[in-house]
């Protein structure tokens, strides 16, 4: 066994991460919960890898008061490519765990994954900014200086609605996978040092 070969523990971690990423394809990544006095039951937007779901029609109906554009899955190229990207990471993880069992590949996978995470969040913020600021000037409710950008993560009051943006199941799996890969990287690095 060469010093750069992945340990059995790390191979298992990477394989589990790969399998977990397949699950992400079918569950929501992110959710924005909305609460207002008239909606004690709450409204929710759910971002799946391939669509927006939840109370989309009701939220679109309410957003017309402030002149926000209506939300449609088709308007986001992200929902077309995200499933492929996730599949790519899942397959790559399995490949690293099964065939490409070297530290270099692991490090490569981890780096790509982190970069993807950052790009994805930046993209998400960009959309939130755009929808929150690009308002119809003829809208019925026009509060000077007010924008309606939901928080990237956490809570924010937007007029009568409280918006609470948090990862959903898929998002949490993503975070755990990221951490899992990080652990594997660290363990493998220590393992390599021992050999020297």
């Amino acid at each position: 066994m060469k010093s750069t070969d992945l340990t059995t523990t790390n191979r298992i971690i990477v394989l589990v991460c790969g399998l977990a990423l397949f699950v992400v394809l079918f569950v929501p990544l992110w959710q924005i919960e909305l609460a207002a006095p008239q909606y004690p039951e709450g409204l929710v937007l759910k971002m799946y890898p391939n669509k927006i779901a939840g109370n989309v029609d009701i939220i679109n109906g309410l957003n017309h008061y402030i002149g926000m554009k209506t939300l449609h899955t088709e308007d986001f190229v992200e929902f077309a490519i995200l499933p492929y990207i996730i599949t790519f990471f899942a397959v790559l993880s399995l490949a690293v765990g099964l065939f490409l069992r070297t530290f270099k590949w692991l490090l490569g996978l981890f780096s790509l994954f982190v970069i993807f995470g950052i790009v994805a969040m930046a993209d998400f913020w960009r959309w939130e900014y755009q929808y929150g600021h690009d308002l119809d000037p003829n809208a019925a409710i026009n509060v000077p200086g007010m924008s309606y950008q939901p928080p990237l993560i956490g809570y924010k009051q937007l007029l009568n609605f409280g918006a609470y943006s948090v990862p959903d199941i898929g998002g949490w799996i993503f975070i755990v996978v990221g951490l899992g890969l990080l652990v594997a990287v660290v363990l493998q690095f220590k393992h390599k040092k021992q050999f020297k």
Binding site: D57, G61, H64
Partner: peptide, 11 residues
């Protein structure tokens, strides 16, 4: 015409 109103019917 309101966009939101027509939205629901597309589905």
């Amino acid at each position: 015409n309101s966009e939101a109103a027509d939205e629901i019917l597309k589905k």
